[in-house]
Design a protein around this nucleic acid. Structure first.
Lengths: 360, 360
DNA sequence: TTGAAAGCGCTAACAT
DNA sequence: ATGTTAGCGCTTTCAA
């Protein structure tokens, strides 16, 4: 009875309550919480004090209704067990938080992202980040039409027809090329490739860069398998290469002497299989290389040679793109002009460790 | 000019627009999008058709203003580089999505969670999940007062005074106890502990369970260091145990013959240091055990003995608790009674692998 | 600088 | 079953 706060358990306190306590109008309260608004310092103080006393915080949803901006970024993600993506998510979320924006998370394992995207749209997210997944073109269109910026991270649009989305990524072809050159320089003769998801643009570009470079050097892919960015699947592929149907080891001269896996995740699992199941020495008998440079790759138990994606710079580019897009959206005639879709490519770096035989 | 949709680029289409096109009232539109509402099937169809034609989706913020529910759960997270948490996040997010709820992510690395929590409250999240972090008691109070359910995941309140929060966790003391018993049974004489964050309840409970059990068995902790749940820090601790100031190896008889690290993350890094920097064999010369059972722990390169936290069941419990809390919030006189804070403890499991010397 | 008033897009009585 | 009406909590003209 003696405490005002106890009354407000059920209904949350509103700007009217604050106005009443502070003895000002409700608009004065609103202005006191709006950075550049015209309020006398004295009123602002009165208001802020009353607000604190009541535990008042502006209702962002009400604000959204008027301003049209939510300060929410929808992030679509999968493969959270590949450390590359958690690290990405953490960086992105932190950076956005410092800009006063929040991440709303959407997990898209497998297909069926469609009603997922509807949810995003219902929340009127200010922008959408698509990582580790593609977008059915119809829904992509819906976003563009709704004027919501979409930025792809490490993906390009599945539809070669509409490259109207912005994207941030490393040069995957170049990375794969450097891996290929490194393996060739190491004197490897039978070079194998373990693919990720065949329909993922990451895999397509890595595979393409790898094959092309081998071809340029007069070599072909000696063995090929699809690992689907999954550790167990990749291991099964490798087993099928080194063991015959009876489970007996094949002659090594008939097996790959180097394996490039489309991501570190698979490469690490492959090293395990090679060394502990098949009893092979890495890199003495088989070299292994990956892609991404996840933290585990540098653990001394692996020392995986890989191509590093510079997460920090990539996220920074992404955030800048995002903010620019969002800002531009508020300008009058913006949506009709710059709809080309800008593809930012951040350079990566070959990291040579001990899992590959070194060039002499 | 020929297409209605092209007009709606800037201002998003509202239920009024749909109503007009469908030739019904605006409330009819609202009802058509409300699951149990009373609409004639014919009208509903007309409305849905018009809605599709215009690309209409209900604005959830407007709805929120009335219903008081956002269907947003705020999740506070840190240590996303420890795979335990990404896996947790993925599971939680997926489960919530199936219930039509979304995760809003808040990264809390280090302190300063306070304005972070203000953001959550401004978004009027339906509930808050605190994982990998604690909560300043003042803000915790603010949540309770605002009637927002708070559930701790793998944490208990820092303030022993107010255990008013709900929590879901494994029995950390029991886990540590089983690790201790396993190490003792393995015949180890000099058992060391590498702590996580000293102020984290996970560490306190693990350390406590470990020490107590050793004491019961007439043993003490042979060596102790603080790894702060950080790989590099943990490695430094271990180095200091096995090398003297000059960087020369100490006699093994003066060094630990078993190390229990407060989480897998550190345990794996320690194995690397032990084997590759210090040239020791695991477990022949030193046994290593961890806690969590992250995926890497089962990689054959490590084969880490650890205590598994059953993520699936834990998340399921968490979601149930969450939904129950949210539902209860809408009931009239609920907030004054069941404010005890229920602590759900999910049993874990000792996973014995090859990083520890086996009991004879 | 301040207050009154209109309205953002929706749901929920209340009539009909 | 449907339409009308009154807000939800806020920002933003518009006057004063």
């Amino acid at each position: 009875m003696h405490n005002t706060a106890t009354h407000n358990l059920r209904k949350s306190v509103t700007s009217h309550d604050v106005a009443e306590l502070a003895g000002v109008s409700q608009s004065a309260v609103s202005r006191s919480f709006t950075p550049g608004a015209s309020v006398a310092e004295a009123t602002r103080l009165k208001v802020l004090q009353a607000a604190k006393r009541l535990g008042y915080l502006p209702n962002l949803h009400a604000r959204t209704l008027i301003t049209g901006r939510t300060r929410i970024v929808g992030v679509v993600l999968a493969h959270l067990d590949n450390l590359f993506y958690p690290r990405f998510l953490q960086l992105l979320s932190e950076q956005l938080q410092t800009q006063g924006m929040q991440v709303m998370l959407f997990i898209a394992e497998g297909p069926g992202n469609d009603d997922l995207l509807e949810h995003m749209l219902q929340y009127r997210v200010d922008a959408i980040v698509l990582a580790a997944t593609s977008l059915s073109s119809s829904l992509g269109k819906a976003c563009l039409q709704a004027g919501i910026p979409v930025v792809m991270f490490n993906r390009v649009s599945a539809q070669s027809s509409d490259r109207s989305f912005h994207s941030v990524r490393t040069d995957q072809e170049e990375g794969a090329r450097q891996i290929a050159l490194h393996l060739i320089a190491g004197g490897h003769e039978r070079i194998a490739y373990v693919a990720g998801h065949l329909d993922a643009s990451t895999n397509q570009e890595r595979e393409n860069g790898f094959r092309t470079t081998l071809a340029e050097q007069g070599k072909a892919v000696f063995a090929y398998g699809v690992g689907k960015y999954d550790a167990a699947t990749a291991q099964a592929v490798v087993r099928s290469w080194y063991l015959d149907r009876a489970g007996q080891p094949r002659p090594l001269s008939l097996c790959p002497d180097a394996i490039f896996a489309a991501d570190d995740q698979m490469a690490l699992a492959i090293m395990d299989t090679l060394r502990d199941e098949l009893g092979l020495r890495v890199p003495a008998q088989v070299s292994v290389a990956g892609f991404d440079d996840v933290p585990q790759a540098s653990a001394s138990a692996y020392g995986l040679t890989t191509y590093a994606q510079p997460l920090g710079p990539m996220v920074q580019e992404l955030v800048e793109l995002l903010m620019a897009q969002i800002a531009q959206r508020n300008e009058p005639m913006a949506s009709n002009k710059k709809n080309k879709g800008h593809a930012t490519v951040v350079p990566g770096q070959l990291i040579v460790r001990t899992s590959t035989r070194q060039p002499i």
